[in-house]
Write a protein that binds this DNA or RNA. Structure first.
Lengths: 311, 311
DNA sequence: CGTCACCACAACCACCGGTTGTATCCCTAG
DNA sequence: CTAGGGATACAACCGGTGGTTGTGGTGACG
C-alpha cells in the first residue's frame, strides 16, 4: 500500500469528487481514478459509489476514512521525528527498564502535547558526543566515566537516586526476608546478564563488587527480561539486582520476591545531561518538570560510587 | 513514502543486517539496500551505519523506529477495518454531535480492547438495509420511520432518551431563564440548519412543530457547528435546539446559554438496532454495556413522537 | 433533448524498483 | 600473512507500476 494513494483517498473523500481531488493533488482526474481503483482492488472492497455528480463514500469507505487519516497523521509524526530543525525532543535513556523511562513517561503524562522520542545509546561517551553534535537533546546518564569530568558545555543535574533491590525466586534462601543488609549478599550468586564491558552499568557494578566483596556473574547473553525473570524464578540459588522504580509485570504464580537492600542501600544515581546552548523549547519544560517532581532524596544510608556526578 | 519500504526498515532494524531482512521479506539483499537508501534519501537522514558485519541504527534511525512500527500497526488496523469476516464492530450513529457518539465513547473507554468503527448513514431505511446486508453491525437510531414497523429480523432496544435544550446567545430574551416551558417557544425563531428532508431528525421536528405550534427554520446549508454557534451567539433573536448530552466546546466570551425545556421536555429517543442473527462477538458486549449503563429514564414530563420505537 | 460535469477505459510512455553480476571491505581462521 | 566468508554498495538490465493524453459513457439540468 502506498501513502500517496491513502492521501488521495482522504482528499477525494473530503472533496466528494475525484476531479477536485485531482486538482488539489496536482494530477489528472484519471490518475486519481486509477489510484482509488487500485486501493479498492488491494483492499477488496468498494470505497466510493461513483455518480455523475461526484463520488461518495460507501459504508466501507466511511469505516476506512478515519484509519486513513490516522495513517497520514502518524506518517507526518514519523517524518517529523527525523526532521532537522524543529523536531521532537530527543532524549537518551540508559535502559528501557530503568527509572529514566519512568521519568519520561511521567513527563509525557504531564505534557502530552510535547512530542518526544527516546533513544538508547551505548555509553556516556557517545551520549556526550551526541549531545554536543545536536543529535540528541538530553540524556539520562547515571555517572561520569571514571576519571573523566564532563566537558564545559555540558550541564547536568541529578534527578533521581534509584535504590537497587534484590530479585529472587520463592525458593531462594532470602525469599522470606523483609530486607537484607548489603554485606550479607557476599557469597550469594548474583546474575546480571547483559552487562556489557565499557558501559557505566558495568563500571557501577564493578565498584559495588570491589567495595562489598560480592560476586556478580555477567555471563551469558541477555535474552530479554522475560527470560531473566523465568530463570530467577526457577533457580533457588540465583538472584539479581533490579531498580526499585521498575514496574514488573510477570505472570501470576511466578512467585518472585523483590527485597530491599540496606546498610547501605546501593542507589543508582540518574542525572540529566544537556548542552548549555541547546535552544529546544521543550528542554526547559523537561527540566522544570524534573525539578518539580524530584523527590527530596535522602542520601543517608545509601551508597554510590565515588565518581558519580555530584548532586 | 511506501509502506513496503517502512516495513523493510523495521525488519532490517530488528534483524540488524540487510541480508537476513532480505531473506525474511523474500527479496534480494540488493533490493533491501536500495529500499533503505531510498528511504534515507526521502527523509534526508542516514538511518543505518553500515558495517562489514551488518547494519545498525543511527540515532536518527532509533528515533524513527517506533514511529515506523506505529505506522505498520495503524496500517494493519486500517486494512482490518474493511476486511470481510472478522472486522471491527461497525456501528452507525445518527450524527457526530448526538448522544450516540457519547455512548460509543463510553463503551470504548470501558472496553478499549474492542476495535470499533463508526459510520453515519443517511436515514433509518439505509441503516436497516445495511444491518440486514451485514455492512454494519448495529445502528443508533432514534425512531422507526413513521408508519413502517421494523422488519422481523431486526431487534431493537431503547437505550437513552436525550432531552433537548435551547441554545441561545447572551443577548437573547430568554438568555436569563433557568428553564423555559415548551409552549413558550411559540413565536420565537428557532434555527436548525442542515435538517435534511427524509431523515428521522426532520420527521421528529416536524411533529414537534405540529404539536406545539413552534416555528423552526431549516433554511441554509449546514456550515458546521462552529458556524452555527457563532451565528447563535451573535444573533439575539435566534435560538436552536441541542441535545442535552452534547459536550460543547466553544471559545470563551461567546456567552452561549443552554436552557432546559420543560412542560414537557422534548426528548430524542435513541435505540440500538441490530440483526438478530449477527454473530459478531463484540455486539453482545456492546449490548451488555448499554444495558448496564442505561440510566433509568423517567418518562414522566417528557414528550416524543407517537411513532418512535417503544421502550 | 442537447449540454454540462464527472468518471471510466484505452493507449502510450517514462521511470521506479526489482533481479543478476560484481567490487569492496573487514573480520577471522589457518 | 593470506585466503575465505559474509556483509554492503554499485552497475546494468528489464518488466511492470503509475503517470499522461484522448475518448466514451452516463445521469442531472435547463
Amino acid at each position: 500500500m502506498d501513502l500517496d494513494t491513502v492521501r488521495t483517498f482522504v482528499v477525494a473523500a473530503d472533496a466528494g469528487q475525484f476531479q477536485e481531488a485531482a486538482a488539489e493533488l496536482a494530477v489528472t482526474q484519471q490518475a486519481v481514478s486509477k489510484r482509488i481503483a487500485a486501493l479498492e482492488r488491494n483492499l477488496g472492497v468498494r470505497l466510493f459509489t461513483r455518480t455523475p455528480r461526484g463520488a461518495e463514500l460507501t459504508i466501507d469507505g466511511q469505516a476506512f476514512l478515519p484509519h486513513a487519516r490516522e495513517l497520514l497523521r502518524v506518517t507526518e509524526r514519523a517524518v517529523a521525528s527525523v526532521r532537522t530543525g524543529h523536531r521532537p525532543l530527543r532524549v537518551d535513556v540508559i535502559a528501557s527498564r530503568g527509572a529514566a523511562t519512568g521519568l519520561m513517561r511521567g513527563f509525557h503524562r504531564a505534557h502530552p502535547e510535547i512530542d518526544l522520542d527516546v533513544v538508547m545509546l551505548f555509553d556516556i561517551e557517545r551520549a556526550v558526543a551526541a549531545i554536543r553534535s545536536g543529535a540528541i537533546d538530553a540524556s539520562f546518564r547515571a555517572v561520569a566515566a571514571p576519571g573523566r569530568p564532563l566537558p564545559e558545555d555540558i550541564a547536568s543535574v541529578r534527578v533521581l537516586d534509584e535504590p537497587l533491590q534484590l530479585l529472587t525466586g520463592s525458593a531462594h534462601v532470602l525469599a522470606g526476608a523483609r530486607s537484607v543488609p548489603l554485606a550479607q549478599l557476599a557469597g550469594h550468586r548474583i546474575w546480571m546478564p547483559g552487562l556489557t564491558p565499557g558501559t557505566e552499568w558495568t563500571a557501577y557494578y564493578d565498584d559495588l563488587v570491589a567495595e562489598f566483596g560480592l560476586t556478580i556473574e555477567a555471563t551469558g547473553p541477555n535474552f530479554g527480561s522475560d527470560a531473566l525473570l523465568d530463570t530467577i524464578a526457577d533457580t533457588p540459588a540465583l538472584a539479581t539486582f533490579m531498580g526499585g522504580q521498575t514496574r514488573l509485570v510477570w505472570p501470576a504464580g511466578h512467585g518472585l520476591r523483590l527485597i530491599p537492600v540496606t546498610d547501605p542501600t546501593p542507589v543508582y544515581p540518574h542525572s540529566l545531561l544537556w548542552h548549555r546552548d541547546n535552544p529546544h523549547p521543550a528542554l526547559a519544560g523537561l527540566r522544570a518538570h524534573l525539578d518539580a517532581t524530584a523527590a527530596g532524596d535522602d542520601a543517608a544510608g545509601t551508597w554510590a560510587p565515588g565518581w558519580v556526578l555530584p548532586r
